[in-house]
């Protein structure tokens, strides 16, 4: 169970990089919220959140190296969300 320094470095390097990216995106998201863009604010925030999710899932949850089945399951969740949102909004956006 001995571990050399190079061992530790390979353990940390990838995740640390992802973490730095996440922190950066978080800072941009927070900063942009104070710039008045009207409806643009929420769009920017959600876009950044989506990118953050992608980074988290790909590098920290390791979907990068996952079997394709696992990726399909992860996608399935998103597909069903889409179904829920689009059909529910098909009601709310067309009411009079």
């Amino acid at each position: 169970m001995s571990n050399g320094g190079s061992d530790m470095r390979s353990l940390w390097r990838g995740p640390l990089l992802a973490w730095i990216v996440l922190m950066g995106l978080f800072a941009i998201s927070l900063g942009s919220a104070y710039i008045p863009l009207g409806h643009g604010n929420v769009a920017v925030n959600l876009l950044i959140a989506a990118v953050m999710l992608a980074v988290l899932a790909t590098f920290l949850m390791d979907l990068k190296n996952a079997k394709s089945l696992v990726r399909i399951v992860a996608m399935a969740g998103l597909f069903w969300i889409m179904m829920m949102f689009s059909l529910t909004f098909s009601d709310y956006l067309t009411r009079w």
Binding site: W80, M83, L87, S90, D91, Y92, T94, R95, W96
Partner: peptide, 22 residues
């Protein structure tokens, strides 16, 4: 089967367009 739930709400106040889709 996940895309048809609105047919329970045809008379509940759902928009006519959504009724059509469902």
């Amino acid at each position: 089967g996940f895309m048809v739930w609105g047919h329970h709400m045809f008379v509940a106040g759902q928009s006519p367009f959504a009724n059509l889709v469902f």
